[in-house]
Design a protein around this nucleic acid. Structure first.
Length: 291
DNA sequence: GGGCCCGCAGGG
DNA sequence: CCCTGCGGGCCC
């Protein structure tokens, strides 16, 4: 007899969680997980500032005022240090000013060079702290954390530079310090001949493969051990998913890759990520739950 | 809510 | 050029 979608999903989740357990990372569960700073979701009533608990609204938490030059003593000034009184805990992200679009466009009007940093590097981006938060993928791309506006994987020759967790696959599991991730491809973005479309995402309609450049890059990450920047998005159904926007959760390593039958019945490429040590704990969103 | 464009970054 | 891709917004 055929399994229902829910049964199939539960089975996949169990299988994916077992992969994480087999990696032996369950011992790394953080003891004290900070709670996500509540961010009020009223976009219509943008009038008052009273919606913010204590901190003044800020855009992203990057050190955008910093020139690229390190200070003479070789250390980089962080805006946490330089602005200690007015900046909230950087690991928790900050509220979004509702005029954020305007802020962005007005802040850097040198169209020639949108980015201060190259996204095609492995590891952290200078000036971007773990826990930094953006309202959109576009802003995230501008800060070189994750370059693609849509794609979940930013591929490189020696592994992926970054990925986005946005809950695109309902059988992935997220334990914060470790998660499973589904590869790219297997989606028909052009529609049918009778009903042609021009989509950016779609349902699975054929098997994924490691021949796909994105999946190939993540497989390469397993081999090279290069760190991968990870952002979690608001669509992610996990207690580690932010309520809004996209949050930089730091560096992970891809420990394993394999193929399995995904929820649509098609083969998908899967990857097991484990967070590297010495990073701030990931905030927990008490309003969310998930796998 | 769903449907359907559409811009964009990046790879071939 | 072409194509892909866990966005975003608009319209209904």
């Amino acid at each position: 007899m055929a399994l229902s979608y829910a049964e199939e999903r539960e089975a996949n989740i169990r299988r994916n969680r077992q992969v994480l357990l087999d990696l032996g990372v369950q011992k790394l569960i953080p003891v004290n997980e900070p709670k996500e700073q509540p961010r009020v979701k009223s976009k219509k009533r943008a009038v008052d500032t009273e919606e913010y608990d204590e901190a003044p609204p800020r855009k992203t938490v990057r050190a955008e005022v910093l020139p690229d030059t390190p200070s003479s003593d070789g250390r980089r000034r962080s805006n946490r240090i330089s602005n200690h009184a007015s900046i909230p805990d950087l690991r928790r992200g900050t509220p979004l000013p509702l005029t954020v679009k305007n802020v962005v466009s007005s802040s850097s009007d040198s169209p020639s060079k949108k980015r201060k940093h190259d996204p095609k590097v492995y590891g952290h981006i200078p000036g971007v702290e773990v826990g930094s938060w953006w309202a959109s993928r576009e802003e995230c791309s501008n800060d070189a954390i994750h370059a693609p506006w849509v794609a979940g994987i930013a591929p490189g020759k020696n592994g992926a530079y970054s990925i986005a967790l946005s809950g695109g696959y309902e059988d992935d599991v997220d334990d914060g310090y470790a998660f499973t991730y589904t590869g790219a491809g297997g989606r028909d973005l052009k529609g049918t001949k009778a009903a042609p479309k021009n989509l950016r995402t779609a349902e699975q309609s054929y098997d994924q493969s490691f021949e796909n450049n994105n999946n190939k890059a993540l497989k390469r990450s397993v081999e090279t051990g290069k760190p991968v920047r990870v952002i979690r998005g608001f669509k992610l159904q996990s207690k580690y998913g932010p309520s809004e926007g996209y949050r930089y959760d730091g560096l992970y390593e891809v420990k394993q890759c394999w193929m399995e039958k995904g929820l649509g019945g098609y083969l998908v490429c899967k990857f097991a990520f484990v967070r590297t040590g010495g990073q701030p704990d990931i905030p927990v969103n008490s309003n969310k739950a998930g796998n």
